[in-house]
Write a protein that binds this DNA or RNA. Structure first.
Lengths: 229, 229
DNA sequence: TAGATTGTTAATCGATTAACAATC
DNA sequence: TAGATTGTTAATCGATTAACAATC
């Protein structure tokens, strides 16, 4: 009988899905990536888990556990190769080629995002800005011309796999989200303080400034009452 | 004459500290609060955990567990009193009187926050805007005059217990944070993509737009590769 | 009472942490 | 070899979920 041909334990063609990276780890990989980029820019070739963890603001045990999900990229007794680990994380995160980003709503927030230096050059490219306000149409922000919302669907089809950013007032957020989803967008970042219902398979991340402040308020209250107690 | 409307079942003088509310619950209370405000504005007097959970985008089991940490504010077979539960959460979160907010850095992001309607009227009041750019000094945003950064310490001392918002470029974030902490601020919201070291007892919440996009990129990559397989 | 819904329990799941054998 | 540091294990901790007795 034939010897078992070298069998991978993983399902062919499903690379990545075999060793599911925990959500908490995925959320920290960008922090490590940023620290690594800074070290590389500073000409540092090697780094230990202790050093890298300090840069990223986590414990070294957590860092090593996180990196272990990507594979073994360190050398015992030595540490990690800065450039190599950086490339590994970029690869794992899907940042090897620029990801198109479409920003809906060019108020102060949309403006801030379009101008954010941390986007271009870090794996993202703003490919579209749309707004519903007449006076804005045709003007440019960060080198990109603002288009009417009616062109949203066209822009999405021109940039398959793009990330949609919802930076419109709360009132308009549901409709914009529905349109993005219908047009084929499956990754959405929203700043609107409303609950968005999307089909399963669509990823939504929500950044809510009021919520962040309210969480801080909770701790501030706890402190004040402890003193007044 | 006012009858004692509210009784406390908790240990006197230890209110709050005896039943530590889990961090995950604290982060969700603002979502419930927002849903309750919307219901109240709509004239809805009662709500079940199923309904409220749907509004907030969580499961009803999770909602009931979360609320159980605040005490028993529902009635079996009936549901929750919308106004009453709203007041309880606001009380628990420390939103009964306006919390002063000091925004450092009035670029697009600081601008967006200062103009954000969800702040005033929801427990917060922007009491100061500071920036280092000469041309901005003296101009007003959302009715607040922009002051030079040199007045940061004075503003903090005028508003004890205020929340500091760091909306300056990454380069300046560390120094601004140190100054806020030295001046006595113990709650900080930062948008700068850098690791901030603060003394224990100081709460920092970090909102990082690039990190959010990178997390979405990870899922987008996973999908693309599954298809390309 | 009969139906509805909470508050709580117990099981499960996922994340963190400390420690150390493996190994450079 | 001796010292350093990773990768992994096992224990702990915290969060989620399902189910249902309590009770309105």
């Amino acid at each position: 009988m034939a010897p078992a041909a070298r069998r991978r334990i993983t399902v062919p063609g499903l690379r990545g899905s075999d060793r599911a990276v925990p959500a908490a780890t995925v959320a920290r990989l960008p922090l490590y990536l940023r620290a690594l980029v800074a070290l590389e820019d500073g000409g540092v070739p090697k780094v230990s888990s202790d050093q890298l963890a300090a840069h990223a603001g986590v414990t070294s045990a957590k860092l090593r556990k996180d990196l272990s999900f990507l594979g073994s990229y360190g050398r015992r007794g030595v540490g990690y190769d800065v450039a190599g680990l950086r490339a590994s994380i970029e690869d794992e995160m899907g940042l090897t080629r620029d990801l198109p980003v479409l920003i809906v709503g060019v108020g102060n927030l949309g403006h801030a995002l379009a101008n954010y230096g941390g986007l271009s050059g870090r794996g993202f490219r703003v490919v579209g800005l749309v707004d519903s306000a007449e006076p804005l149409i045709g003007t440019t922000v960060a080198g990109v011309r603002i288009r009417p919302v009616t062109e949203l669907e066209m822009l999405v089809s021109q940039h398959p796999g793009c990330i949609g950013v919802v930076a419109v007032p709360a009132m308009a957020a549901k409709e914009v989200t529905d349109r993005l989803v219908r047009a084929g967008v499956r990754s959405i970042l929203t700043f609107a303080p409303v609950t968005l219902d999307v089909p399963s398979g669509v990823h939504v991340r929500k950044v809510d400034l009021a919520v962040e402040l309210q969480i801080l308020a909770y701790h501030e209250r706890a402190r004040t009452e402890a003193v007044a107690g």
